[in-house]
């Protein structure tokens, strides 16, 4: 059974590219585009890994991350934070909130695939 990856991202083009590269690696990819939808989907259809963009409508990625880590039923899902604001401050925030990986845009496809592999395998 292939691992399932949920992408939370509001840029359709990025969803498309991420879906493509991860799909090629054999992952089952689905996507949501706002903060509220992420939490709903996590509960209804629990993925193996979550790719979480920081700048999400309705609820920012950090808020979502915090809620995930507070919720014992969800906190076990590995989260890779994706952000366009490649600032050190954001990386720190993500780490403090318990993110399992942190990737800045623009990202290297290989890098994303490697990290997802590690998170899905671990």
């Amino acid at each position: 059974m292939s691992a399932r990856v949920l992408i939370a991202e509001d840029e359709p083009n990025l969803i498309e590219s991420l879906s493509f590269i991860l799909g090629r690696e054999g992952y089952e990819v689905s996507a949501v585009s706002d903060g509220d939808a992420v939490l709903e989907r996590l509960r209804s259809d629990r993925p193996h890994v979550l790719i979480l963009d920081v700048m999400l409508p309705k609820r920012t990625g950090f808020e979502v991350l915090k809620l995930i880590k507070l919720d014992p039923t969800l906190s076990g899902i590995p989260v890779m934070v994706l952000t366009a604001k490649g600032q050190e401050r954001d990386r720190k925030t993500a780490e403090d909130l318990g993110a399992d990986a942190f990737v800045t845009k623009p990202f290297s496809n290989q890098d994303v695939v490697d990290r997802i592999k590690r998170l899905a395998g671990g």
Partner: peptide, 23 residues
């Protein structure tokens, strides 16, 4: 930081798709 974000977002698509096309 906003500019950075706004620039990085399209850049991310461009890079990602270029890499797909290349590899």
């Amino acid at each position: 930081s906003q500019v950075s974000h706004e620039v990085r977002t399209p850049m991310a698509s461009i890079r990602s798709f270029s890499e797909i096309l290349l590899s």
